[in-house]
Write a protein that binds this DNA or RNA. Structure first.
Lengths: 123, 123
DNA sequence: ATACCTGCAAATTATTTGCAATATA
DNA sequence: TATATTGCAAATAATTTGCAGGTAT
């Protein structure tokens, strides 16, 4: 991967914020600094950065991909009312522990990724 | 919600299969029985059934919403190579336990849903 | 009879891609 | 110089929606 000013900007934006922005949010931020950066470039670089594991992705019910600059292991709480996404560090897991933070959990979804038995030897 | 033959069909399709079909897969199944059911009807009813908690949704990296007829608490394993989605029951959680099933875990994503502090009193 | 629900097709939204020009190594 | 990357605009893919007619209660 060759260096590009645009990719570095996008990387820094994602790394520098604590919310979990979508591509268009990152595009808006980027244009404040690089006024003619294109949306295609933002999408292309977000995808490249995610593939090279420099940033992480978060899939939500709103059907838009969210990006996360924090690569340390953590979970997320998503408010079904306002859509706010809250980071959960320190192995906070039980509904009771989350309740103590003011978060009433109604549902949880846990997804593991990796290679299944059939694809064990591939890549 | 009023009864409709189409919704009952869609509901039965989602409940009756163990994979985690997308809207177009459900549409294809539905058309085998109800040959002129429309894609819009499938989308509308899947959304309605998910909102009324009769079926569940599963968000994946492929950016298509998957549906799950199994409402019992369980997690999922998604193969990053073939995209196959495997149900994980019985509180199987650690990478070691998953390894024993032939699943090599490289990543996990856990998302909790509910109301945040600001939205506590809403609905 | 009153809405809810449908099929259809067009609209919307998110994301991807082809291309000619530009920038990096 | 070779080719990765860009901006732009058009294409694609998933999902939603407006509407006129059909259907459940």
């Amino acid at each position: 991967m060759r260096y590009s000013r645009q990719r570095e900007l996008i990387y820094n934006i994602v790394k520098g914020r604590c919310d979990h922005p979508t591509a268009d949010m990152i595009y808006a931020s980027a244009r404040e600094i690089e006024s003619n950066i294109s949306l295609g470039t933002v999408y292309r670089n977000l995808k490249a950065l995610a593939e090279s594991k420099e940033i992480d992705t978060l899939e939500t019910v709103d059907n838009r991909l969210h990006y996360d600059g924090n690569l340390t292991a953590h979970s997320h709480f998503i408010c079904v009312n306002c859509g706010n996404i809250i980071d959960l560090f320190n192995e906070i897991k039980t509904p009771n522990e989350l309740g103590d933070m003011g978060l009433s959990v109604t549902q949880s979804k846990c997804v593991y990724y990796g290679n299944c038995n059939d694809c064990k030897d591939i890549k």
